[in-house]
């Protein structure tokens, strides 16, 4: 197992191993409820809450959970936090709860959350698990925001309901419809991969010739 520092536990989920953009997990909500920025934020925060709560509890109780029933216990813990988030959202922000619809309940089956429990929280100390959950949660919110901003601006001409282009803008309705979700994630991934593929050779050259680290190691 790779040794990681606490700092790495936190930061890697935010960008380098972003759950949506790099690991390709949790794509269902990222496509389904990112048609406005407000929905993206609410979904991101709900998922964030569930992830933190589950990671904390799984990490605390890992000693008591026999290996044979670990997945069912994780799911039970996740489902409990999802139900709590569902009821709280309905009580506090009913309009957003109505807009998110069934997707709150579907956080239970978000692979990203179960993945963090199985791969991290069930094997690491509580503090590290919390850092990991925080980083992954922030990464998820960032990905949701990227999707939501692009889709609301293009599809509705607004950000958080405020007009961006003025009244003469003819919205591309397709971007707030399901196909727009696929277009948006497609173009974001295309851009990311393009940047990465350009950077890799440069980094390699820099390491081989530049500061000589690679040379010393060899």
């Amino acid at each position: 197992m790779r040794i990681t520092t606490p700092h790495q536990d936190f930061t890697r989920g935010i960008w380098r191993e972003n759950p949506v953009l790099i690991q390709m997990l949790g794509l269902c909500p990222a496509l389904a409820v990112t048609n406005t920025v407000a929905n993206s934020i609410a979904m991101g925060l709900a998922t964030f809450f569930v992830l933190i709560g589950s990671s904390l509890l799984v990490s605390l109780s890992k000693r008591f959970i026999p290996n044979e029933v670990r997945i069912s216990t994780f799911i039970l813990i996740i489902a409990t936090f999802v139900t709590i988030a569902d009821m709280s959202l309905e009580a506090v922000v009913p309009d957003i709860h109505k807009a998110l619809g069934a997707f709150i309940a579907l956080i239970v089956v978000n692979c990203m959350i179960l993945g963090r429990q199985e791969a991290f929280a069930s094997k690491r100390p509580v503090g590290r698990s919390l850092l990991d959950a925080l980083g992954t949660g922030v990464g998820f919110i960032i990905a949701m925001l990227m999707m939501g901003t692009v889709r609301e601006v293009l599809g509705n001409g607004t950000i958080l309901g405020f007009s961006v282009f003025g009244s003469n803008y003819e919205p591309w309705v397709i971007f707030i419809l399901p196909p727009g979700g696929f277009f948006t994630i497609g173009f974001i991934l295309l851009g990311l991969n393009y940047v990465q593929s350009r950077r890799k050779p440069k980094q390699l050259v820099a390491e081989l010739t530049g500061d000589g680290k690679a040379g010393r190691a060899a």
């Binding site: 026999p66 044979e68 069912s72 813990i77 709590i84």
Partner: peptide
């Protein structure tokens, strides 16, 4: 196995009723 799942289920139920 049964008691782990049972305990977890009971705690979950209690929490949900509370909320």
């Amino acid at each position: 196995l049964v008691s782990t799942l049972g305990t977890a289920g009971a705690l979950a139920g209690f929490l949900i009723v509370f909320v």
